[in-house]
Amino acid sequence: MTTTLPTLAHLLAPILASTPAPHRLEVTFDDVTVAVSSNSQALIDTLAHYFRDFAGGGGATVVPVVAIEAAPPELDLPFAVQEREGGKSLKEAYAELPDGRVVRKLKTGLVFAFGHGENYAVGPCLQNDNQVVNFINNRFIELRLKRGALLFHAAGIAEAGQGLVLSGFSGAGKSTLALEIMRHGTDFVSNDRIMVARGDSGRLTMTGVAKMPRVNPGTVLNNPNLASVMGEADRKRFSALPQAALWDLEHKYDAFIDDCFGPGRFTLSCAMAGLVVLRWKRDASPMTASRVDLRRRRDLMAAFMKDVGLFYEFEDPSEASLASQDSYLDLLGDLPVLEIDGGVDFHQAAMACLDFLRDIRR
Rank of each mutant, 00 (worst) to 15 (best):
S170K: 11
Q131N: 06
V132I: 07
I68P: 00
L241Q: 05
E319V: 05
E69N: 05
R279N: 15
A172N: 07
D307I: 15
R144G: 02
G57D: 02
Y328C: 08
E180L: 09
W280I: 15
K88F: 10
D248L: 14
T288C: 14
F54P: 07
P98L: 06
T4A: 12
V27P: 01
A303C: 14
D187W: 08
R198Y: 03
T267N: 14
V65H: 01
K281W: 14
S167H: 10
L354T: 12
A35Q: 06
V32I: 13
T4W: 05
A9Y: 03
P224E: 08
L249K: 07
A302S: 15
D345M: 07
N39G: 02
A21Q: 06
A197V: 05
G343R: 07
L11K: 00
V344N: 03
I157L: 07
V277T: 07
G343I: 10
A21Y: 01
F266I: 13
F51P: 01
R235E: 13
A303R: 10
Y253N: 10
S89Q: 10
E315G: 11
S201L: 07
V36L: 01
L278E: 09
V196D: 00
A240D: 05
A271E: 14
D307H: 14
T186V: 12
A245F: 04
D200C: 11
A302M: 15
T108A: 04
K146V: 11
M287D: 11
